[in-house]
């Protein structure tokens, strides 16, 4: 993985003092790299909002309204969480989001890898045209699709049901493209050997190619997880019934009803955000690889 490799010498802490009056520098040298003086405040700025969110979720509303505010909760309480679970359907929204994300990831992994394999390895009539059409749709923004998709889903009777949120996440041109690029980078010899041994085309794909594709599948899964878990605008349009809210839509609308009940809202925020944060901390390498990959797409 790229981030663990050695940094380039340009920005390394090499003793550049050789050129510009090294003596004075050496005498005043800090016991640690001076970059800590820059990076530590920076890290604090980035973490502080999340820290404030977590701390507020353990305060009472009265304590949050105190001026000047406390930093740590004076009397830590889980009251916000208790009320959140009693006064909102947050568990149901979470379950909906888990269902959406699970379906999205599974469908993405199966459909994108199959299509990616087909487009990279198999030769058949219509391949070129359908691939060009597919890749062309990468440029189409969601905003253009919202209105016709809403009308279409209304006619199909899926609006206001969970499938309305899941359907657009079944597969994606970006995912197909990602998997195709990955398969193109694999050597063909293994597959040819398996074919000669009498393995079917699907058997080759399932038993030989997919096990090799784990890094690409991990990237695709994380990409889909982040997108489907965090999406707001499409559930907002497709779902009116609060039984089918996703966690993001549920919280956004709950905020509208409980404007200033901060301990409640921050508890909800923690519940919605922490699964992704924990995932990130556990699988940081894969997350970073995913972010880097979408950056390298261009």
């Amino acid at each position: 993985m790229a981030l663990s490799t050695a940094p380039t010498p340009t920005t390394d802490d090499t003793p550049a003092g050789l050129h510009d009056g090294g003596d004075r520098r050496r005498r005043w040298r800090l016991p640690f790299s001076p970059y800590h003086l820059l990076l530590l405040p920076l890290a604090v700025v980035f973490v502080m909002p999340l820290l404030q969110m977590v701390l507020a979720s353990f305060k009472t509303d009265a304590e949050i309204r105190q001026v000047p505010p406390t930093f740590f909760p004076a009397h830590p309480t889980v009251d916000g969480y208790v009320r959140l679970f009693h006064e909102s359907d947050v568990l149901r929204w979470l379950a909906n989001s888990v269902v959406v994300a699970t379906c999205a990831i599974l469908a993405h992994l199966v459909l994108c890898s199959m299509a990616g394999y087909g487009f990279s390895r198999l030769r058949f009539a219509g391949r070129g045209v359908s691939f060009v059409l597919l890749v062309g749709t990468i440029m189409i923004p969601t905003q253009l699709l919202m209105i016709p998709t809403y009308i279409m889903f209304t006619k199909l009777g899926v609006v206001n049901t969970l499938p309305a949120v899941i359907l657009p996440w079944l597969t994606s041109a970006f995912g197909v493209f990602l998997m195709r690029q990955f398969f193109l980078s694999l050597p063909r010899e293994l597959e040819e050997a398996a074919r000669l041994d009498g393995c079917s085309q699907f058997g080759v794909f399932w038993r030989v190619v997919l096990p090799l594709a784990k890094p690409a599948l991990a990237t695709l899964a994380i990409f889909t997880l982040l997108g489907s878990w965090n999406d707001l605008i499409w559930p907002l349009i497709a779902i009116n019934d609060d039984r089918w809210y996703t966690i993001q839509l549920g919280l956004a609308n709950f905020q509208g009803q409980r404007r200033t009940e901060w301990s409640l809202l921050m508890s909800g925020n923690v519940v919605a955000t922490m699964p992704m944060v924990v995932f990130f901390l556990v699988a940081q390498r894969q997350f970073v690889a995913t972010m880097t990959f979408s950056g390298m797409k261009g």
């Binding site: 940094p7 999340l50 839509l249 995932f279």
Partner: peptide
């Protein structure tokens, strides 16, 4: 982009808000 102590923590701190949703 340098090898100093705690660099992993600093990087994590900068990356982690990226996973927070727009709603949150």
């Amino acid at each position: 982009n340098r090898r100093i102590r705690f660099i992993g923590l600093y990087r994590t701190a900068v990356f982690v808000p990226f996973v927070a949703s727009a709603a949150a």
